[in-house]
């Protein structure tokens, strides 16, 4: 397994790979990392979205930035390398609120809204969310291991877990 590549997904970015490669995104804050996986073909996809809804913006030129557009593109790219749409399962992480500015109720927080949007879209597409680690006030680094489908969530001061 010496030829395992670790592919970095930046903010407002997405990528897809096959077993044995690993997809990672570093330092998720209010953004949400969406990991999709097909356990049969071992195709994995990871998107790092920043905002819930592309329809609030005119001239959207970056589909990986928004939950609504990124998820469709991620599925399309995964199918393109052999995944089957009806076998996909999702794991999500992030959506924290990093700063506690006043006069902001919880529903207005961008992290909360990102998680809600992602959950709703996956639900509409009948893609089950089999695990999630969202909210709270700390950052997360995630790794999707396509050999197993495990999503590793690393933090500073809040432990490491496999979900």
């Amino acid at each position: 397994m010496s030829d395992v590549n670790i592919i970095k997904v930046g903010m407002a970015d997405l990528n897809v790979v096959k077993d044995p490669h690993i997809l990672t995104t570093l330092g998720l804050g209010s953004c949400v990392g969406i990991a999709l996986y097909d356990a049969v073909t071992k195709v994995g996809g990871l998107a790092h979205i920043m905002l819930p809804d592309s329809k609030q913006i005119k001239n959207n030129s970056n589909i990986a930035k928004f939950a609504d557009t990124a998820i469709f593109k991620l599925i399309e790219d995964m199918v393109g390398i052999g995944a089957r749409g009806n076998r996909l399962v999702a794991k999500i992480a992030g959506g924290a609120h990093m700063f506690e500015f006043k006069n902001m109720d919880d529903m207005m927080r961008i992290g909360t809204r990102n998680v809600a949007a992602v959950t709703q879209i996956l639900d509409e597409l009948a893609i089950p969310i089999v695990a999630s680690d969202t909210g709270s006030n700390y950052g997360r680094t995630i790794e999707l291991h396509t050999s197993t489908g495990i999503l590793l969530v690393k933090t500073i001061g809040h432990g490491i877990k496999e979900i």
Partner: peptide, 26 residues
Amino acid sequence: SIPQISIDMAGAILSYPAIEFARNDN
């Protein structure tokens, strides 16, 4: 505003201004 603090990964901290200021631009 009153300053707010976060002690964490640089990327996670930067996501806050990024969301605010790269909303319409890339």
